[in-house]
Design a binder for these strands. Structure first.
Lengths: 206, 206
DNA sequence: CGGTCTATCACATATTTATGCGATGGACAG
DNA sequence: CTGTCCATCGCATAAATATGTGATAGACCG
């Protein structure tokens, strides 16, 4: 029996969804709230197993701030975002804040139920398009072709090393490090160590 | 009717899985290979809709190199990794290389079938634990509390700006930039711009 | 065999950074 | 109303970095 909480400002959706979940023999759902503030104490004192959390709330903080808050208070339940939004921004903010899943509001009830189960059993339920967005975010851009040695140097730069340290590390002179770095700058079209590191990490070149 | 290809070195698994998929009315599966090299030409000439690709192959390149190769050749099908491995390394490498999904080998057939459908319809099917790993990778560490202004400065550093440019950008003097950066270094425990940028990007502080 | 790429090293110099020491005014909490 | 952050600014100096202009030797390709 999985206990489910819902924070959703639209009364119709909230009560309808709550009822449908509660009717199912595997779930109970009697913790319904219209905003984060009113839910906070109740959910921390009697935590559910899984919380469905809307992002756009009429009153008070939004759902993403809500996740951060629950995580900060070490709330012991999994949080699934429940939102109409499909934009990168909201999705990644939610996951960074600590949500374990993300469902769009057009998700049919059976899918929602299996998503709740999945979240409760250590999964990360996401609507199809959301999962694809998340996975896509890993894809490397086509990398400017750095030579193997240049990659070595770049990796060391990303570890915060100075020219001197890099040289010691790779057993080459500082001057050689300089040369490699010059070539790296040219290929990445940057002109500072910070720029190179930023590009390397942002575009997953290393 | 979704056409499925399989690259898997274990003959039993390959043929058994191929048969089970092919039997289902929604799928056809008659492109079976035991390594990437032998599959390459065939799959590029007559591409399936979805390819199941094992990571550990007895002969030739491994599955991850395989994904990179297919992506490089702009193969027009979705690739789902199919592996016993659950370690971060392999998962993230696969997704970075361009796989759209990742299933562990203990996945029951019905799940495999629905995963193939999902991949074909623009999703990103993953085994439960894998999805959780992927989502977890987004979670921010608890951030050293930088002041708002310090964050502004750090963001500009991550954009590759020099002290001078940052100052112009934020309408403050270089000396003030210096002061902020000093404080940032202290809080992040680094002592160079590159170190700060690396830490900021790696730990998603910005 | 000649061209191209990589990896290595060298020297010179202008610019940028890192670091230390100080200072002022405003906001906010106890 | 006092202490603690924040944000702002200044000056000085040593270290690191960016950039230019070399050079040599091996690998690989056609």
């Amino acid at each position: 029996m999985i206990e489910v909480g819902i924070i959703e400002d639209d009364k119709d959706i909230r009560e309808h969804l709550g009822l449908l979940i509660d009717e199912h023999p595997d779930f109970s759902c009697n913790k319904l709230f219209y905003n984060v503030e009113s839910a906070l104490d109740a959910l921390l004192i009697h935590p559910p197993d899984v919380l469905l959390l809307d992002i756009t709330l009429a009153e008070g903080m939004d759902g993403i701030q809500g996740v951060s808050l629950f995580v900060e208070k070490e709330a012991p339940f999994e949080i699934i975002m429940f939102s109409v939004h499909q934009d990168d921004e909201k999705v990644f903010q939610s996951l960074c804040a600590g949500a374990c899943g993300y469902l769009t509001k057009n998700t049919p009830i059976p899918k929602i139920l299996s998503a709740i189960k999945e979240a409760h059993h250590g999964g990360a339920p996401m609507s199809m398009q959301i999962a694809r967005m998340v996975v896509q975010s890993f894809r490397s851009k086509q990398k400017p072709d750095l030579s193997p040695r240049e990659k070595d140097v770049l990796i060391e730069l990303c570890n915060g090393k100075s020219y001197k340290k890099v040289g010691e590390c790779l057993f080459i002179s500082q001057d050689t490090v300089r040369t490699h770095i010059r070539n790296i700058y040219r290929k990445l079209k940057v002109n500072s160590k910070a720029g190179a590191v930023a590009k390397a990490l942002k575009e997953r070149l290393v």
